[in-house]
Amino acid sequence: MSERILVIEDEDRIARLLQLELAHEGYEVAIEKTGRQGLKTGLSEAWDVILLDIMLPELNGIEVLRRFRNTNQTTPIIIITARDSIPDKVNGLDQGANDYVTKPFEIEEVLARIRSCIRLAKHIHEQNMEPSPKTLKVNSLVVKHRSHEVFREGKRIILTPREFDLLVYLMENWNLVVTREQIIQHVWGYNFTGDTNVVDVYIRYLRKKIDYDFDTHLIQTIRGIGYSMRESAK
């Protein structure tokens, strides 16, 4: 069965290009040209990947992303945007996007990022089909893998999908040092071609949520190498 991709893009030329190229690759493709209709279609049907423009009529892409993630935390979303500043990219990722592509883009890059998102989604689905729940515990931090719930000292902590994957990877490597490159490969995927500085950005997000308000800090910076999860007093 062909993977289904929803393209939410109001520029006719780009929408048509994506439709033709994706169909040529064997994907089933649907196009929506407004943010409001794109959100409605995205939530009403099952999609393997959503390609989402930022500058959309009726409802901008970031608001579409925010509302979609309130209901659906799992469907991969790739932002397509002409805004190439770091704050714009980080904002999109922080709202729950899985990846981003800047305009103008090469179609080969878009296809590679789609394949990466689909592989990762399938991997997460297979993990969630395990017969017994997977729970990770470090100090007072508890992660329930199948339900994507995170608690510290009994307080529930809300993470974006990318933050959750990063936290799980660090917890699975408790007391070990992992490099930025290793984190990129395991959390973003082997086909990720962005700047490894995105790891530092997400580590900062994660620290704000699971470390800063507690007496024991768990995420440690290993200067010149990467990061490690281990106990350290304030």
Rank of each mutant, 00 (worst) to 15 (best):
S2N: 14
E3W: 12
I5M: 06
D10E: 01
E11A: 10
E11S: 12
I14D: 00
A15H: 10
R16K: 14
L17C: 05
Q19G: 09
L22F: 13
E28R: 10
E28S: 15
V29Y: 07
A30V: 11
K33P: 05
R36Y: 07
R36T: 04
T41V: 13
G42K: 12
L43Q: 06
L43M: 12
S44Q: 11
E45F: 15
A46I: 08
A46K: 14
D48N: 15
V49G: 11
V49A: 12
I50K: 02
L51W: 07
E58W: 12
L59M: 14
G61L: 07
G61A: 13
E63C: 04
L65H: 13
R66W: 07
R67I: 06
F68N: 03
T74G: 03
I78V: 14
T81A: 04
R83K: 14
D84R: 12
S85L: 07
S85R: 13
S85V: 01
P87Y: 02
P87V: 01
K89E: 00
V90S: 01
N91W: 07
D94S: 14
N98W: 09
Y100G: 06
T102P: 04
I107Q: 04
E109D: 06
E109G: 10
V110E: 00
R113Q: 08
S116H: 08
E126Y: 14
E126N: 13
P131Q: 01
P131S: 05
P133M: 05
T135C: 07
L136A: 09
V138I: 10
V142Q: 04
V142R: 11
V142L: 05
G154V: 06
E163L: 05
E163K: 00
D165M: 10
L167G: 03
M171S: 11
N173G: 02
L176T: 04
L176Q: 11
E181F: 02
I183F: 08
I183S: 08
T196M: 04
N197Q: 10
V198I: 15
Y202D: 00
R204P: 01
L206G: 03
R207Q: 13
K209A: 10
I210E: 00
Y212H: 13
F214W: 04
D215Y: 09
H217F: 11
L218E: 00
L218T: 08
L218Y: 12
L218A: 09
Q220E: 05
I225H: 14
S228D: 01
R230P: 04
R230D: 00
E231N: 10
E231L: 15
S232N: 08
S232A: 13
K234V: 02
